[in-house]
Design a protein around this nucleic acid. Structure first.
Length: 468
RNA sequence: GGCGGCAUAGCCAAGUGGUAAGGCAGAGGCCUGCAAAGCCUUUAUUCCUCAGUUCGAAUCUGAGUGCCGCCUCCA
């Protein structure tokens, strides 16, 4: 069963063949750290986290790199506004980003390089490009000579001719072509800078990824990922820089995730229609957010609405409710035969990480397990399906908790706070009332708890509670 | 202006040539003191429209309509 990946470079699904057998080297563009991260950033991270988890799950040795762009116009602007240094701004938001991603169960990449810690590598790469005639200096700036790189446009499917026809790009007289882009920018007063052979300055945006990916993964590696908005110009430029300098093909597979939308529009800082991860997690359990993000194929846009989050929550509740029924979940494999659900799940994931379909098969498993439990026969089978569902969930970075921890860890939607001890006491009181057929009091207790967002479920032998 | 993507039930969403997964919501039933949870049954003769190719199309081709994105920073 081969793994297929949709490659932006070819515009089709291709069988995945690694550079080195059993190994995957993957580089994903991380954030520019000048503000809190929003759900759009979360999608990219969760999608590629799931890709990495899956590769590891099926036995690949993965080296996963995700950078931090920590020197940039926006960071400088932010620093000036808040009377902090650029470094303070970037460190603060790297910290916030890390907290958000940890909350979302995103694995830490093997390397998280920062641009500012790779200035030497960047300068060397720029010099190399100058020597090879692919770059030129103008008054302390260094530009990439786009016309000289014949494959320019191969990723985004555009040609320089097309671009000239349509674009109204601001003409910079100093550049040979309007599409030449900055590899190095000279420092203006008050901006952070490094001393280099081309003067005081800082790296352009694209060059860091070329320099850092080759340092950690080699000049040719397997997968390069990021949001669709990075295809042009960022990834196009990375290809140009890297392939011009190294003379080898850069990344073999390019994967791009679709946007998160609000009111049918791309969520973005500039449209000011974004929701931070931090705020979202105040209302929704992290696994719910993750489930939501994985409920649609990663290349399609996904609309963020309260209703769809609510739906994700209801769906996830359904899965965890099964675990409540099967009791303590043991996820140690006992080397059993895999169920048909398992095989369908793997097929879905092998087909360009079709998490939406994969989740569908999880639910088929949930129904089957519930059916078996209701029939009262072969509970062992129900248990083993539940165990498999846990493993499938773990591939997706969800179902990592016990049912109790999940249900009781959900952000409370009821206004009042009530302690587990108080809830237990009320359940005791209700139990007595029910025994005495005092259903009025029993229902009153249940209704009161419901008001506070606590749901009771009477089981044959006990009553369990959870947050709605 | 250039380039690209999407359109499947009330809603969300798989399916890319062989006769419509899954979830939510709705209806009926079982279970329950009543609920909740769960299970069963049920909910698209049909996949934006119109042509075409084919024994056969939601799936391929062409035209049209609508929505979105990239071309400036963006996950």
């Amino acid at each position: 069963m081969s793994l297929k990946i949709y490659n932006t470079l070819s515009g089709q699904k291709e069988d995945f063949v690694p550079v080195k057998e059993n190994n995957v080297n993957i580089y994903v563009c991380g954030p520019t750290v000048y503000d809190y991260s929003h759900i759009g950033h979360a999608r990219s991270v969760v999608v590629f986290d799931t890709v990495v988890r899956y590769f590891r799950f099926i036995g690949y040795n993965v080296t996963y790199v995700r950078n931090f762009t920590d020197v940039d116009d926006k960071i400088i602007k932010r620093a000036n506004e808040s009377k902090m240094t650029s470094e303070e701004v970037s460190l603060k938001f790297i910290d916030e980003f890390t907290k958000d991603m940890t909350a979302l169960n995103a694995l830490k990449p093997d390397y998280e390089p920062k641009a500012t810690e790779h200035i030497n590598e960047i300068v060397e790469l720029v010099q190399d490009l100058i020597e090879k005639g692919y770059a030129y200096e103008v008054e302390g700036d260094v530009y990439f000579r786009v016309e000289k790189f014949k494959d320019y446009g191969k990723l985004s499917g555009r040609s320089l001719e097309d671009m000239k026809a349509g674009a109204r790009i601001e003409i910079d007289e100093r550049k040979e072509s309007p599409f030449d882009f900055a590899l190095w920018k000279s420092a203006k007063p008050g901006e952070p800078y490094w001393e280099t052979p081309f003067g005081k300055g800082r790296p352009g945006w694209h060059i860091e990824c070329s320099a850092m990916s080759s340092k950690y993964l080699g000049q040719s590696f397997d997968i390069h990922g990021g949001g669709k908005d990075l295809i042009f110009p960022h990834h196009e430029n990375e290809i140009a820089q890297s392939e011009a300098a190294h003379g080898t093909s850069f990344a073999n597979y390019w994967m791009h995730n679709g946007f998160v939308r609000i009111d049918h529009e791309k969520m973005s800082k500039s449209l000011n229609n974004f929701l931070t991860i931090k705020d979202t997690l105040k209302s929704w359990h992290p696994e719910v957010v993750r489930f939501f993000l994985l409920s649609k194929h990663y290349r399609s846009p996904i609309d963020f609405t309260d209703d769809s989050l609510k739906e994700a929550e209801t769906s996830l509740d359904r899965i965890y409710s099964l675990f409540e029924r099967t009791g303590e979940i043991k996820s140690d494999s006992k080397n059993q035969e895999h169920s048909k659900f398992w095989n369908e799940f793997m097929e879905a994931m092998n087909d360009d990480f079709n998490t939406a379909k994969a989740i569908g098969t999880i639910f088929e498993g949930v129904r089957e397990a519930n059916r078996i439990i209701d029939s009262g026969e072969n509970l062992e089978k129900a248990h083993s399906i539940a165990d498999e569902i846990v493993k499938m969930g773990n591939c997706l970075g969800i179902l990592l908790l016990s049912a109790d921890d999940y249900f009781r860890g959900k952000p409370s939607k009821g206004g009042e706070k009530i302690s587990p001890e108080e809830i237990e006491a009320l359940i005791e009181e209700r139990k007595t009332a029910r025994k005495n057929k005092d259903f009025k009091r029993a229902d009153e207790i249940r209704d009161n708890l419901a008001q506070m967002g606590v749901v009771l479920e009477d089981k044959p032998d006990k009553t369990i509670w959870k947050f709605a």
